[in-house]
């Protein structure tokens, strides 16, 4: 019977150093996480550049997909941030594609989901949060902090509302990162658990968890897209808050 480690559903999240590198005492090895990040950005770039190589006026399948992705994000920015958001289009597009491909690639057997690590999602979320805050401060100066004083609140409630508003604002990167990380980790853990059941139940009982796993895979494809979408659209909304409401 297989050892306990092989049925450990959390084992799939372990980082393996493929090429150990150390610079200035800091470990910057090329790990499985890094590998799949590189694979993701390669695929994104290849997809987008090769599919529009023909620049056809009536697009074929791949070109339609690339145009669809472009317009999807462009519309999202235009609807949620407005015209000033056009400057941020490359960043938001990169963000969306990076998370989307990260989530999707994790569904390949024996691959690694780099978005299932809290440190990766925290870094992404913090970058977005700090970037947006800086944009807000640069744009509005010190009036930016008027954001924390909601309108229509009686003065007496202010000492209560201001800290709450600040906390709410600070909770944004936390919620962004936890949401993405938790979804990915929970989904993949469930799939691994049911896969373990398939092995345990063997030939006669194994078809039931196998069916569940098939359904889960389909569900996880949807979640992969959904979480990338939610992360991106929240970024747009937060950006809109900072740009417009001050």
């Amino acid at each position: 019977m297989a050892g306990a480690e092989q049925l450990n559903p959390l084992e799939q999240f372990e980082i393996h150093r493929l090429i150990p590198i150390e610079i200035g005492g800091v470990d910057v090895s090329f790990t499985n996480s890094s590998l799949w990040m590189v694979i993701a950005i390669t695929l994104v770039t290849l997809f987008l550049t090769l599919s529009v190589r023909r620049r056809a006026l009536v697009p074929g399948r791949w070109q339609s997909l690339a145009e669809l992705a472009y317009e999807f994000i462009a519309n999202m920015i235009r609807d949620n941030v407005g015209q000033e958001g056009r400057r941020f289009f490359p960043f938001i597009f990169t963000l969306f594609m990076f998370i989307l491909f990260g989530n999707m690639l994790g569904l390949i057997p024996y691959s690694f989901t780099y978005t299932s690590h809290i440190i990766v999602t925290v870094t992404l979320a913090l970058t977005v949060f700090l970037g947006i805050t800086i944009v807000g401060i640069v744009r509005h100066g010190l009036r930016f902090f008027a954001f924390f004083m909601p309108q229509g609140v009686p003065i007496a409630m202010m000492p209560l509302m201001i800290p709450i508003e600040i906390l709410s604002y600070l909770s944004r990167p936390v919620s962004l990162s936890i949401r993405l990380f938790a979804n990915m980790m929970a989904g993949h853990t469930m799939m691994k658990v049911f896969a373990g059941f398939v092995v345990i139940l063997g030939l006669f009982g194994g078809w039931a968890p196998l069916l569940v796993d098939v359904a889960l895979t389909g569900f996880e494809v949807l979640i992969a897209f959904l979480q990338a979408y939610v992360f991106t659209i929240l970024t747009c909304l937060y950006l809109n808050d900072t740009i417009h409401l001050h």
């Binding site: 470990d27 993701a40 960043f91 990076f98 990766v120």
Partner: peptide, 17 residues
Amino acid sequence: TFPTQIVWLVICFIVLY
């Protein structure tokens, strides 16, 4: 594992951007 993930995340993201 944090430093390596952060470093490679930043590198890959910037390259993709």
